[in-house]
Design a protein around this nucleic acid. Structure first.
Lengths: 133, 133
DNA sequence: CCTCTTGTGTTACATTATAACGTAACGCTA
DNA sequence: TAGCGTTACGTTATAATGTAACACAAGAGG
């Protein structure tokens, strides 16, 4: 993961950080191609995999999209709140709750390794302001 | 949703019920084509949408796959435990926990409408038996 | 039987994701 | 800086997932 890959990852991260919401891999690709026309889908996916692995990027499973991790909640499972109106995503950290989830699943002997917790709804401003279709 | 659609949905549900784990839409399609060769992807997706809507089928967002709802926990959000080794999926119901999740997200004014809670790990038998790659 | 509604099949395509492989860049050692 | 091994990249190709649009057919109701 030496240097070139770090540069790719940095570029990816930089684009993601410049977005208010989540981006699909191909939107990201289009964006990156404006500055680096030869970049390809596999490269993007490799970078995203590495960034997700080390907790700097979250994959939104329910959107097939990606977002830069805002806080330093690396390696702690996050709770992601997704506004279905404006696309904004908030991160929350609540290790106790995730532990509770593991416990519920564990009642049958299930050993939890990774939590996917995504909450769809309306963010504060969309909720207040009424529908912003 | 009259009659024909119910038959399609019943067929889809029947196939899903015959599976131990989750199925992708296209696996389902292949399966259904053994008895009804003309059935098409859009039809499958329409049926899955209706069944998901009314709580008889769960969509596994992190797998892009579907599974029949086992219990009568309709319309209550489910916690889905997915065994990464054998593909088995367990459902748990814990309304209190989902409410807690809503509360955590709600701290910023977010209004939760739908919870996606999927836990990856190992089921009891895979965990006990060691890796069954 | 005729018509209206509704779901279907078809076609076509968009979107998301990855396998495979040769090559170019890098990093190290001397 | 030359040589060499490693690693990530670009390319190509394709797999997998999902949906828009539209004409047609099946069933419901008069």
């Amino acid at each position: 993961m030496s240097d070139r890959s770090k540069k790719t990852q940095a570029a990816v991260l930089s684009v993601l950080r410049g977005q208010r919401g989540a981006m699909s891999a191909y939107t990201l690709l289009d964006e990156l191609r404006t500055t680096k026309p030869t970049i390809s889908a596999p490269t993007i996916y490799r970078a995203l995999a590495a960034l997700t692995e080390c907790g700097q990027v979250h994959r939104l499973e329910s959107l097939n999209a990606f977002i830069a991790c805002k806080d330093s909640d690396r390696d702690q499972g996050s709770i992601l709140s997704i506004c279905d109106d404006c696309g904004a995503v908030e991160e929350s950290v609540a290790p106790d709750l995730l532990a509770e989830l593991s416990k519920v699943a564990g009642q049958s002997g299930f050993a939890a390794l990774r939590h996917v917790v995504e909450i769809h709804g309306q963010c504060a401003s969309c909720n207040r302001g009424g529908a912003q279709a």
